[in-house]
């Protein structure tokens, strides 16, 4: 059995059609970026699910920590005035 370690992990993003953003589809192992793209095509677009692919080394992604999710996202929690529904408008006023 080969003793070599796993190929690096890549995150795959697929644009399903023009006009839409790339969205995360999953991950895969590949030795380099070009092989990652080819593997991503075979793994995530076998049924024409995409018109464009991104592959990103998983180690290059910096993520927020779930442990600090309350304090990290807390600043937005007490600002309901950022939503249009916060404001009361007299009935009958249109286009607002």
């Amino acid at each position: 059995m080969s003793s070599s370690t796993d190929w690096p992990l890549w995150e795959v993003f697929v644009r399903s059609r023009r006009g839409l953003s790339h969205t995360h589809a999953g991950s895969l192992h590949a030795p380099d970026a070009e092989m990652a793209l080819r593997n991503a095509r075979d793994l995530y677009t076998r049924r024409s699910e995409g018109v464009s692919l991104w592959v990103v080394p998983s180690t290059e992604i910096t993520a927020s920590s779930p442990d600090e999710k309350d304090s990290f996202f807390e600043p937005a929690g007490d600002k309901p005035y950022r939503h249009p529904t916060f404001y009361e408008i007299p009935e009958g006023v249109k286009h607002l």
Partner: peptide
């Protein structure tokens, strides 16, 4: 399949080591 996996790693390492080349053709 071990030799194929090893060859792919050797190829990737060779290209990563070459100055000015940013990861094969992608």
């Amino acid at each position: 399949g071990a030799w194929v996996r090893d060859a792919a790693v050797a190829y990737a390492d060779k290209h990563a080591a070459r100055p000015g080349s940013s990861g094969a053709a992608a």
